[in-house]
Design a protein around this nucleic acid. Structure first.
Lengths: 203, 203
DNA sequence: CTTATCTTGGACGTACGTGTCTAACTTAAG
DNA sequence: CTTAAGTTAGACACGTACGTCCAAGATAAG
């Protein structure tokens, strides 16, 4: 965390940083396709050799951690770019859905069990919590203001939104829907599920 | 399929069949919790030793196939018990949801990637298709009769229903919702998503 | 150009899961 | 009780992935 990145030695080659980034990208892409990909697979995808991976990341766990950290940072900044707190909840939700879909499309690994399962030893059980945090706040606000459905628990709403995101991502991955179709279906479905209807229905 | 189960040898011990069933049950339970459980794990859960598993199932793949076959049969018969073709689509969907939730609750492995991933070599890519087939037919009928939403593709509806089932199952598994809560949330959410609203909204 | 960094190839040890075999034992079936 | 079915313990071969070490070659930095 508090690492000043002190250039203590006189020579540092940007050569190294490039291959380090290549390995990280390859890990994200490869693990997104195959959650149990080996270091060998990742190295091949990065165009390097297994030992080079270990030169930058001491262990598989370390690489996994780096992947998750990178994704968390990227996602957080992508979601920070949108304002989700001031617009009316429905509008904010639309923006959140659009932004998060874009991120998921760029990093399909986010929908893979790699992230959830990769909790090393006794780390936080939800590393990607910083991402859903904004959604949680948004849902709470929508409920407080009376424009979001409150029939079921808040957590159910969150998990339903995530689950529909998974479904949309899988449709695209399976080639059964275009990215635009999936995005629209995802958006419409979530809104239909979350936003309270104009007139109250019976039970 | 057409195996007369001929008692060709003079002695057959029901002892064997009991442990065979124990292994199968243990495999279903264990793989439901941990998709990559070893034969050792399954054997331990069954109260036997690894070699005993191999005495009944020649390979891991064979065991997996047996698990899937068993689940397919069980699920099919559970869903055959309900009539999903004659009642009005919404009512039929309610029944389908209730029945399929009961099955999923009994066999959490159905929501695990074990089933989808376990396609051996060039087998059907969807072994559990016989289960969703009924849902597909039901959704088609509801669309034709004009009571189900047609805004997005049929396949999206199916995959959304499955995805919400996953979400509900995970909530229960994580202890965040009771089984009854999850069932209700699942049912309500699917209906809200699938059934056309009384009055057409704008775009 | 010199030097330290980086990558590479080769080899090695370890751990784990699969699948097979065999001999000894328990136990249900006749 | 006798016999064959079934389970067990032990050992083995095999493959795969992880992680480490080292020496040689390529290359960017000064």
């Amino acid at each position: 965390m508090a690492e000043p990145e002190r250039p203590r030695s006189r020579k540092r080659r940007l050569d190294g940083e490039r291959s380090r980034a290549a390995v990280l990208d390859a890990a994200i892409a490869t693990l997104g396709r195959q959650a149990d990909a080996s270091i060998e697979d990742i190295a091949a995808a990065a165009g390097v050799v297994r030992q080079t991976v270990y030169a930058h990341y001491p262990s598989r766990t370390a690489l996994l951690t780096a992947v998750i950290d990178h994704l968390t940072t990227e996602t957080a900044s992508a979601l920070d770019a949108i304002d989700v707190t001031s617009p009316p909840p429905e509008q904010a939700l639309r923006r959140w859905l659009e932004a998060s879909w874009a991120v998921v499309e760029r990093y399909p690994i986010l929908l893979s069990p790699v992230i959830a399962t990769a909790a090393p030893p006794a780390d936080e059980h939800d590393r990607h919590r910083p991402v859903t945090t904004r959604l949680v706040d948004l849902v709470r606000r929508g409920r407080r203001t009376g424009v979001f459905e409150e029939r079921h628990s808040e957590e159910w709403t969150i998990s339903a939104v995530i689950a529909l995101g998974h479904a949309a991502g899988q449709q695209v991955a399976a080639g059964r829907m275009s990215s635009a179709e999936a995005a629209a279906a995802y958006r419409d479905s979530v809104l239909r599920l979350v936003v309270k209807l104009p007139m109250a229905e019976d039970d």
